[in-house]
Simulated assay, not measured.
Amino acid sequence: MASYSANTKREKKVFDTEDDVAKAMAEYTFNLSKKFCKKRGYFTIVLSGGDLVLWLKKLLVPEYAETEWSKWHVFWVDERVVPLDDKDSNYKQTLDSFLSEVPIPTSNIYAIDQNCAALGDAKGAAIVYEECIKRLVNQNIIRTYKSSGFPQFDLQLLGMGPDGHMASLFPGHYQIKEKASLVTYITNSPKLPPKRITFTLPVINCASYNLMAVCGEAQADAVAKVFKDDFNLPSARLTADTQAIWYLDKAAASKLPSECL
């Protein structure tokens, strides 16, 4: 697995506006969907919450009408352990904003366990989600990464918070150090709601393609710290074991050191 050291190389592209980031993310996703559907007959995509699910609506234009939605398998890099119809649910936000608009089979959309979510059972939800992933690995829907045995999703779309967290891996919390499990959980998230499940760092870094999309001035300090190799920030530990790229708007990139521009 990857190690963390100074001068870690991070590929990035800076766009004028948030809308430009969203359009570029849609194009990137479409091209990879086309590639993997042709190559494997499946496309495994991992989503985040927040603005990213709104940006996915850029795929709903005639330019991408050839998207093979029936071959998509959709997962979440993290999820809030709340009922699936709760406004804080990443699943519900994505369903309302995007999934309800495209013909992805319901059986190909992998929300967290409904019972665990309703009960607020974060540990149980993590266990069940990990079991789901392992089952799909055994069915060859999800590949594994080289000899590590960790699942290798085709594309993971990530975001970063102003504190530098990604998924539900937060600075100063032990979950960032988890190396054995595929999915872990947190019950005291510094960002509400407090109960969440999240992919572990090894799983995140094993994706064939990782796209970190970050927009807004509120993220600029954290972006600068990441590109200065501040590994106290979980997002700085997103490595290019396979392919990782950062899409930034000018506001998010505004405090990057000059050598990174």
Rank of each mutant, 00 (worst) to 15 (best):
C215N: 11
V14K: 00
L256E: 12
L47E: 02
K255Q: 15
L119A: 15
M25Q: 03
L238M: 14
P257I: 07
V21N: 00
N210Y: 03
L201C: 04
E101T: 02
V82C: 05
R10L: 01
T239G: 08
R80E: 10
Y28R: 01
K177C: 02
P257Q: 12
A218E: 15
T200S: 03
L158R: 04
I141M: 11
K250E: 15
Y174D: 07
G49T: 03
P62A: 08
A125P: 05
L59K: 09
D113P: 11
N90Q: 09
G161V: 05
S148L: 14
C206H: 08
S100Q: 13
K195W: 03
P193Q: 06
H73A: 09
E68A: 13
Y185A: 01
K228L: 12
L238K: 06
I176Y: 07
I204Y: 11
N232T: 13
E27M: 03
N108M: 10
T239Y: 05
L233C: 06
W76C: 01
K12V: 00
K39C: 00
L157K: 03
T198I: 04
P194V: 03
A220R: 12
L136K: 10
Y247N: 07
Q175T: 10
N108T: 06
Y4W: 05
V137S: 10
A22E: 02
A118N: 14
S147E: 15
A220S: 15
Y209D: 03
I204Q: 06
T44H: 03
S148F: 09
V46G: 00
G124P: 08
K134W: 13
I104W: 12
K13S: 03
E217Y: 13
D19W: 00
S97V: 09
I141A: 07
L201A: 06
K57R: 15
R40H: 05
H165K: 02
K13I: 01
D51H: 06
T67Y: 06
A224I: 04
A222D: 12
Q219S: 13
G50H: 10
E18W: 00
K87S: 08
L84E: 07
L238G: 02
L261W: 14
G50L: 06
I142A: 09
S258Q: 13
F231P: 04
T17V: 01
I141T: 11
E217Q: 14
T187F: 01
A167T: 02
L84K: 12
T106S: 14
A111L: 10
D241A: 11
T239F: 11
L47S: 02
H173W: 09
G124R: 13
